[in-house]
Design a protein around this nucleic acid. Structure first.
Lengths: 200, 200
DNA sequence: TTGTGTATATTCACTGGTTAGTATACATAC
DNA sequence: GTATGTATACTAACCAGTGAATATACACAA
């Protein structure tokens, strides 16, 4: 059969992603994933040792693309630091208006598996959010902000808060409100920065 | 048997609360809830017409006590508006250090049932958060803040963000960071308020 | 060129357990 | 003697994971 066999594994992960994200982890059976991928459950278990393993693969596949998207939205925005960060929230609001949007897969998984704190999928989610936080922190540090880690965490809190609130109310305008708050916090931090601070 | 029969229904809701909150909605079976309440599943189905009904009752029971706790934390704190709101976050951080803490039941339920947008439990969760938002809005309005609704929503975003982030990282210090951000936003809003603004 | 062994990849059929919800009967109180 | 409340026993479906067999590709020997 196919020698490197990555297409099969890839197909399984993509089927799992669509189902887990749309329906929830525990709602979706391994049989459903296999059917959607066009193969039998037994074949799926050849590529993944357990359902938990598959859940971890689902989130791992979303890690880099998600981060790249945030960086792209930031990079493409015209303006100062605060405006560029606010652009992330505006773009997110746009995605959230899509009818199939159902929040952040990482956060929803950690909520659903809250009774299994050490679950591999939760570790992947935590690492993902740390990477985002660290990218923000480094960006803020470059701009000479006094406490870049604190500010990065505050932005992250607003971002994840908007995922949660918009999922509950189905009202993406909360994301724009979060973006305004982020802008305020960044402008305040820029106002307090030392004379050596770099501006854009 | 007991005539008003409210103790039985009450016992079921309490058993359901403990199990749903600790293990997750879909993880817990109706049999488990019945067993924990000390009666049979058939009796449970006499008091609730479905599992969905029971899930809604679980969240409805948390609505008022939760709001009362937030108001109490706010009322008992010494200081100005910003400090009193920050106190909510500090108290929340304290709760989150308890080993059995597992985030916000309303948000976790909305994440787990994200594929059922009209679910009664999600409606109850949305109404709960709206009540909190409205209480904050009214409080800010009393203090003469220019756009009390916007500020209330920003605080709510930080609060729900801290639930999500702390659940993921199991690091309650994020709640204190959120509290600082809330204080900054409120102080900024107070600084911009009209001359007629009331101070505390 | 042809035969053969081996690792990779896939399927069918199954198990043991769980699950939401119900048909029916029984008990108690007033 | 009827409302309310509780229990036993059941259904029909679902679900994570496995045993055993099979098919293919390719390396290497004859």
């Amino acid at each position: 059969m196919p020698r490197p066999s990555e297409p099969t594994r890839e197909r399984i992960v993509q089927a799992a992603s669509a189902l887990f994200y749309n329906e929830g982890i525990r709602r979706v059976s391994v049989d459903e994933v296999a059917a959607k991928a066009g193969l039998t459950k037994r074949t799926l278990y050849y590529h993944f040792k357990s359902k938990d393993d598959l859940v971890a693969a689902y989130l791992a596949a979303r890690d880099q693309p998600n981060l790249a998207l945030f960086r792209k939205w930031f990079a493409e925005a015209e303006g100062g630091l605060a405006v560029k960060v606010e652009a992330i929230f505006k773009n997110l609001a746009r995605s959230a208006r899509h009818p199939k949007w159902k929040g952040c897969g990482f956060l929803r998984t950690s909520a659903e598996l809250a009774n299994m704190p050490g679950h591999p999928a939760i570790r992947i989610g935590a690492a993902h959010k740390k990477k985002f936080e660290d990218w923000l922190r480094a960006t803020f540090a470059e701009q000479g902000i006094a406490d870049p880690l604190k500010l990065a965490r505050q932005i992250l809190l607003l971002l994840d808060g908007s995922f949660a609130v918009v999922l509950l109310h189905r009202d993406p305008s909360y994301m724009e409100t979060a973006g305004e708050a982020a802008r305020t916090l960044i402008e305040t931090a820029l106002g307090k920065q030392g004379v050596s601070g770099v501006r854009t």
